[in-house]
Simulated scan of single mutants.
Amino acid sequence: MPDQSIHPTASLEDIDVANILIPIDGSLSALGAVKQVIKNSAFQPQPTTVRLLNVQPVFSKHITRFLREREVHAFQTDRAERALAGAVGMLQQAGLPYSVHVRRGRIVEAILACCSETRCDRIVMGTAPKHALARWLQGSIINTVIARAHVPVEVVSTGEETLLDRIGVPVSIGAGLMVLVALSD
């Protein structure tokens, strides 16, 4: 699935532009990153251009053997458009130039490749607060991007912890400790 440019940007070679990549998955956290970039653009000494990236997963061969390539493409295009709609609307309303990129594949690799290909100066990613144990257990796309990116990565924390993060993880830890104490007796 090639990159799709919805809003063409002016030639960037002639002017100094803050070129920012924002991965968009349709979550409130991703929209929080867009909101932060819009807010910060007013304080930038140079114009800001935003690259929105949506990454669609590659389906397994077990699924694709029952579907035609154009059906998979149509499904992924629809999902990408829905995920990107809120971010696109926010950038249009703010009047910031942007382009939209849709890729298929692994998320981290797609983010890093798009960043390199579009010569972004920075990656801005949104995240919801999570309990440290939940972050450790789930692994983190953000941590991997930070470790592998050759440009600064800004992480914008938005929203609140989920009920599972606030209550479920500490309760699970407590229950696990109680089991260990009971087994040690």
Rank of each mutant, 00 (worst) to 15 (best):
P2A: 08
D3V: 00
Q4R: 03
Q4W: 02
S5T: 04
S5N: 09
I6E: 03
I6D: 07
I6H: 03
T9F: 07
L12R: 09
E13Q: 10
V17M: 10
I20P: 03
I20F: 03
L21T: 08
P23C: 11
I24E: 08
G26Y: 00
G26E: 01
L28A: 15
L28V: 07
S29Y: 09
S29R: 05
S29G: 14
Q36M: 13
V37M: 11
I38M: 04
I38G: 07
N40D: 15
N40R: 13
N40G: 13
S41F: 06
A42K: 13
Q44L: 14
P47H: 07
P47F: 02
V50L: 10
N54Q: 08
V55H: 01
Q56V: 01
Q56T: 07
P57V: 03
P57W: 03
F59G: 11
F59T: 04
K61G: 12
K61F: 02
H62K: 09
I63K: 01
T64P: 10
R65M: 10
F66T: 06
R68Q: 13
E69I: 04
V72F: 04
V72Y: 00
Q76H: 05
R79D: 00
A80Y: 01
R82E: 05
A85M: 04
A85W: 00
M90D: 13
Q92T: 04
Q92M: 10
Q92H: 05
Q92W: 04
G95W: 03
L96C: 05
P97I: 02
Y98A: 11
H101P: 00
H101R: 07
V102K: 00
V108F: 03
L112T: 06
L112G: 08
C114T: 14
S116A: 10
T118E: 15
R122E: 15
I123R: 01
T127M: 14
T127D: 05
T127A: 15
P129V: 02
H131F: 08
A132Y: 07
L133Y: 03
W136F: 13
L137Q: 11
Q138T: 07
G139Q: 10
I141C: 02
N143M: 00
T144I: 02
I146G: 02
A147N: 08
R148Q: 13
R148A: 12
H150A: 09
V151D: 06
P152K: 01
V153Y: 04
E154M: 15
V156N: 08
S157A: 08
T158P: 06
E161N: 06
T162K: 06
L163N: 07
L163Y: 08
L163M: 10
L164G: 14
L164S: 14
G168D: 06
S172K: 05
A175L: 12
A175D: 09
G176R: 06
L177E: 14
L180G: 09
V181D: 08
L183W: 12
L183E: 12
L183C: 15
S184I: 14
S184R: 11
